[in-house]
């Protein structure tokens, strides 16, 4: 009893310590967002924003195109997350549950694609997009959506394949015996069990699409079509950076990611109960 308790205390203390170390830079960002300009950098650290101000936030929100760019970012992210989840789940099934000609080559290709540095692809990708068969994809959100989709798909397929492989095949076998169609078996049995994996890859896709900068900057020109990261970059000029407003903007853009996570995190907890089913 006491040993259990000591263990719990030790675990919780470690948890709190890890939390503090990890969160500190984020805290520094958020607290800067509440500091007046003169307090952003000080010789003696100001641990708390005192006096605190909301002017950085009002300044950030009132910058041109904020809400338009929020809309654009939300659109891009929703489409990327939804499509990547569906496409990668299907592909992961194929790779984890079937053996077929070309399977190895496909896996190697998917790994190799991720090794190409993004910066080296900017020019070739731009050439390809501006000469796309169905009309130029430059300065269009769809172009950026498709680009992000290809960047996250290899990762999602690959990760999901690992999750699918971790699930005993006997479960689908049982469903097949019970008279389900094969696809039905996949959807009814596998999907809930792969949920934690899907959540993990969705968070990944969400954050990648939400935070990507250079492709969005180069490919989207019109201010009304840009995403939030490009909007954020406008806080930095040759005359210096309005750090307080920038941090306020960054805090605002990080919020949706956290909200998304809090919404889906139950799925991770759900994974725990799913584990029980398996055993």
């Amino acid at each position: 009893m006491t040993r259990r308790r000591a263990e719990r205390i030790a675990l919780n203390t470690t948890g709190v310590l890890v939390f503090l170390v990890m969160i500190f830079p984020v805290y520094w960002m958020v607290s800067t967002a509440f500091k007046p300009g003169i307090d952003v950098q000080t010789f003696t650290p100001k641990w708390f924003p005192h006096p605190a101000t909301l002017s950085n936030f009002t300044d950030a929100i009132h910058r041109p195109y904020f809400w338009q760019d929020v809309k654009n970012s939300v659109f891009v992210v929703c489409v990327v997350v939804a499509l990547s989840a569906v496409l990668s789940f299907l592909a992961a099934l194929a790779l984890a549950r079937f053996r077929f000609y070309g399977r190895k080559a496909f896996i190697v290709l998917i790994i190799a694609v991720q090794m190409v540095p993004l910066n080296a692809l900017i020019i070739p990708l731009y050439i390809a997009f501006s000469n796309a068969p169905g009309g130029t994809q430059v300065n269009k959100l769809t172009g950026v959506v498709v680009a992000y989709l290809t960047f996250v798909l290899p990762f999602c397929i690959w990760t999901l394949r690992g999750f699918v492989m971790g699930i005993p095949q006997e479960l689908e076998e049982a469903a097949l015996v019970d008279g389900c169609s094969r696809f039905g078996a996949f959807v009814r049995i596998l999907l809930p069990l792969v949920a934690p994996g899907l959540v993990a890859t969705s968070i990944f896709a969400f954050i990648q699409a939400w935070n990507e900068y250079i492709i969005a900057y180069v490919f989207l020109s019109s201010p009304e079509k840009q995403t939030l990261t490009v909007w954020l970059a406008n806080f930095t000029t040759n005359r210096g950076t309005a750090w307080g407003s920038l941090m306020a903007g960054a805090t605002l853009t990080a919020l949706p990611v956290v909200a998304f996570f809090v919404i889906v995190h139950r799925k991770i907890a759900f994974g725990l109960t799913a584990g029980g089913v398996k055993g």
């Binding site: 969160i23 830079p25 900068y213």
Partner: peptide, 12 residues
């Protein structure tokens, strides 16, 4: 906390 870290744009 981990997600917050992850969610912070790299530039920031």
């Amino acid at each position: 906390g981990l997600v917050l870290v992850w969610a912070t744009p790299v530039v920031v």
